[in-house]
Write a protein that binds this DNA or RNA. Structure first.
Lengths: 205, 205
DNA sequence: ATAACATCCGAACGTTCGGTCGCTATAGTG
DNA sequence: CACTATAGCGACCGAACGTTCGGATGTTAT
């Protein structure tokens, strides 16, 4: 086929490692990620796989970053053009629900799993996951604030409370889909979000 | 000291293993439970620790059962004498919140962690965790049904939806406490529950 | 053509994993 | 007092863990 530079090959190898790593970690956990397992899956040697990263923790951190890219692209970007405030907030909820209901990662939402796994394990991985969680939280909070300022939500709405409850619905949906395999939870999550926001929410097409 | 039978000693050893195992698993995960780690912590040999259980999976299963006992005793039993229906439902919510806010296990709620860890890993451990989750879900659902039948909740209340949203608030509280270390989430969870139930909810004293 | 370089492999390292086996020390039983 | 049962220990096993190292291979630049 077309000749490719070795530099481009390395980049694609790295991307393949991170993509597969995120997929495996969504099921087995980030700590359950194994150099040997990854190498076998990708038909590589352990040393060749570890090469670009140096050690396992660096690999874990970059897997988290790669998953964050997917998360952002999957959920936020499709709704970034919606008007700020309530419209964008309702849209991101629909987008979020769709992400959970779709087999993007075999183990469901990478970040819900990673957050639960590392919530009590201090270290760089936890710090990184927490950083992304904070960023996400602030993003939602900002839209909620704007929605109140615009008068699209009741003036006595507490944005912090709203984000808290929206997050809860997402977590409940994740657990229902993953543990209980109850697809009926999708409309339940949407209904709960709609009640909180006062506008319909449906999983984005 | 006082002489004890070897049978009683064995039972207490077993209980100590399971208690410490549940504590460690709440932080490191059930899969991260390690025979050697447990043995070192308890000042035992690996073989002596594994003896009563035979293999690791049996140990894991019995750790789950031991944690379920604690969970039941911590959350359900204190409110079992409340009148069925809405009073008991509101009480169990308060009891639940208190459990999350208290350092019962060093890693927070054992079952939330275990459910997230094993939601995508088929096998006996998942089956057992799912069984307890179902039992818990049915218990809440029954009380919600009763509350509607009693007229303590609006007639158009969907008990399934109610349980779903209550669970979401608990999951959000767990994440806020553990990952974000935000103690302000406790009143937020109570407020959400109170809004769902129409009666005040406060963490049981 | 050749030197330089990057990519990746294969083999080995020390450690830890879950698990097995035989032994000792102690408690209960006749 | 002997006899049996059992709780737990210490030594050990093969496998897998993360990591290191030197070399084979193939692309890029001179």
């Amino acid at each position: 086929m077309s000749p490719r530079s070795s530099l481009a090959d390395a980049a694609r190898t790295r991307a393949a490692i991170l993509a597969h790593g995120a997929a495996v970690a969504s099921v087995e956990g980030l700590a359950g990620l194994t150099i040997g397992r990854l190498a076998t899956d990708l038909g590589m040697s352990k040393s060749g796989l570890l090469g670009p990263f140096g050690n396992k923790e660096t690999l874990q951190l970059q897997v988290v970053e790669a998953a964050a890219d997917v998360f952002w692209r999957e959920i936020w970007e499709p709704v970034a053009d919606r008007p700020a405030g309530l419209p964008r907030l309702a849209a991101v909820c629909g987008s979020w629900v769709r992400h959970l209901a779709r087999p993007v990662f075999p183990g469901g939402c990478f970040f819900i799993a990673a957050a639960s796994e590392f919530d009590d394990r201090p270290g760089p991985v936890r710090d990184l996951v927490l950083g992304y969680a904070d960023r996400w939280h602030r993003e939602l909070h900002g839209q909620a604030l704007r929605a109140v300022a615009d008068g699209d939500l009741p003036a006595d709405t507490d944005p912090e409370q709203l984000v808290f409850e929206l997050t809860g619905l997402v977590l409940a949906l994740h657990q229902a889909l993953r543990l209980r395999q109850d697809a009926g939870a999708v409309p339940r999550a949407c209904q709960g979000m709609a009640r909180l926001l006062g506008v319909p929410v449906q999983p984005m097409a």
